[in-house]
């Protein structure tokens, strides 16, 4: 399921170095098989001054086990989730920064399944410290992004505008510490 390249010790060591130095890394072609999302029912989550998106629990034991193995080898962290959060953002969706929401020390992991996207649509993930963006992640199909967070990190998904039409972004978002 996960591209074997990412279990190669030499490559893993190099990736770890980049993560240590840069604080984030995006690995492309992460899965070597197509991940199927059959029978997924998204629920709309809407609180106007905070967020608008659709959410579903993603329960696939095999997927979670593979991911857990990878994260254990790569980060030396155990994934204890029995399900993952699968998010879908389309036209009009967004999240806003919230002073009340505090991040912890750890890693944010975004696994992206977006098929088609264009920069003009918005929908990127923005990470800030002291009100300055230090990382902007654009939707990228079949990628995993690992971002080191601390208590001063804040995060939002940029509003998706009408140019996106019916295109949507899909990603799994999880936190591990």
């Amino acid at each position: 399921m996960i591209n074997k390249v990412y279990f190669n010790k030499e490559i893993l060591d190099k990736i770890k170095l980049v993560l240590e130095k840069e604080g984030s890394i995006q690995l492309n072609n992460f899965f070597d098989t197509n991940i199927k999302f059959s029978k997924i029912k998204f629920r709309k989550k809407y609180l106007p001054h905070s967020y608008s998106y659709s959410y579903s629990k993603f329960i696939d034991k095999e997927f979670i086990n593979y991911l857990s193995d990878f994260l254990f080898i790569f980060l030396d962290k155990k994934l204890r989730n029995r399900f993952l959060g699968l998010f879908s953002f389309g036209y009009g969706d967004y999240t806003l920064l919230n002073d009340k929401f505090k991040t912890k020390n750890g890693y944010k992991i975004i696994i992206d399944f977006t098929n088609y996207w264009h920069d003009d649509f918005g929908g990127y993930h923005s990470f800030l410290r002291k009100n300055k963006e230090f990382l902007r992640l654009k939707p990228k199909n079949n990628s995993i992004s690992i971002i080191k967070l601390d208590k001063n990190t804040r995060y939002f998904v940029k509003y998706i505008n009408n140019k996106a039409r019916k295109n949507k972004i899909y990603f799994i978002d999880l936190f591990i510490n």
């Binding site: 106007p48 001054h49 806003l96 509003y159 505008n161 009408n162």
Partner: peptide, 10 residues
């Protein structure tokens, strides 16, 4: 312009 907005706030 096309695509610009100001999201809900108080």
């Amino acid at each position: 312009s096309n695509g610009d907005y100001l999201l809900p706030h108080d």
